[in-house]
Design a protein around this nucleic acid. Structure first.
Lengths: 198, 198
DNA sequence: CACAAGTTTCAATAATTATTGAAACTTGTG
DNA sequence: CACAAGTTTCAATAATTATTGAAACTTGTG
């Protein structure tokens, strides 16, 4: 089993080939489930990195998302080939984001983790965390700059003031939109929202 | 002049103090315009870094946004204290994103750059570039994985398949929402959109 | 309270990403 | 076509960020 996971870090070009161990009949899948998982984890890691999260964080999340049961720190270390320290910190981050939960098993000291599987909920968690880190932080900085008094006849001042108020306006709209998305009920999301926008 | 810009790289705590060169009457601003600009450029750089763009890219963009006229590569280098190579590459990136324009002056070989000042347009450019880099890229990878055939009685397979189709569904909605936002006319944006969401 | 079975922390290090700066290139003009 | 005034490229380096792994810590149990 553990051999199959090595493709997490080094994606294997044979993904795109027919599984060499089957007889190549047209009913067999081109990918085994384990290969597909590995590829998904890789993809999710790359996507995560292009957002601001570390590759490992995204990969742990991906692995838990596609795992039917809960996994322990030990499992994560082994399957993703990461160190104990890394696993511990990553898991803590994911708990903070609200993307995974601890699962305690009676009589066991070891902790297990399950992913939040409801994608709408996942989206909310991500929006909440990123909004706090990026938008709210920025709004605070802008507020004290936008109403700097100055001479409206000065082109330098006008350019500055216009740019800042425009950005503030945009930030306000974004904030409201994000708040709406976060509150969204499943039904609201799929009904009103989807129908409106398509 | 050039001394004032040093706060771009090392934010100066005196931002929050009354300008020591004025007489501290209550009609004088707490910040000079140059200080406020420097602080804005710093803020925008930090925000940019928490998205996926380099600090320099965000700062060049910020500087051009608050500059009433066009600036040359030389101006950018001097005001942001960056190297010629860095300025050249950053400017090219910003041109690619569509966030700035070249301004050619008859009889001069030197190139000048102006920022797109319409924030709605800026938003569109950013959405377009990021969507292409992140969402479209991901969708492509997921498509080939989501319809992997398998045994629906296998919990491993079910978990994988459910997670992937859920993510695809979410990606589709996101794509449509982003497309809508990109098409949005100014009037549509402020009327329909803002009113609906507030 | 000693110990076993875990988890967390954090300094050192590895990996990645951004930046510099000099050399190569481009382009218009006498 | 030589030169001046710029721009671009890219290998070397600096700066930043992620990861390791060993030591410190925690917690439940005999």
């Amino acid at each position: 089993m553990s051999r199959q996971w090595q493709t997490y870090s080094v994606p294997n070009p044979s993904y795109f080939l027919v599984n060499p161990t089957d007889n190549n009949t047209n009913t067999t899948p081109a990918l085994t489930l384990a290969e597909a998982k590995a590829q998904f984890i890789h993809t999710w890691g790359v996507s995560g990195a292009s957002w601001g999260v570390s590759k490992t964080l995204a990969q742990v999340h991906a692995l838990l998302l596609v795992s039917p049961g809960a996994l322990s720190t030990e499992d994560l270390m082994e399957q993703l080939k990461i160190s104990r320290g890394n696993a511990s910190m990553t898991v803590r981050d994911l708990l903070d984001w609200g993307l995974i939960y601890k699962e305690l098993r009676p009589g066991e000291r070891r902790e297990y983790f399950v992913a939040e599987k409801d994608m709408l909920q996942v989206t909310r968690c991500i929006i909440r965390a990123r909004k706090r880190r990026e938008l709210d932080q920025m709004k605070r900085s802008l507020d004290q700059l936008a109403n700097l008094p100055g001479d409206p006849a000065d082109a330098e001042y006008r350019a500055f003031h216009t740019a800042l108020t425009d950005i503030q306006q945009l930030a306000n709209v974004s904030e409201k939109l994000l708040n709406r998305l976060m509150q969204a009920e499943k039904s609201w999301f799929w009904d009103k929202f989807m129908k409106l926008f398509m």
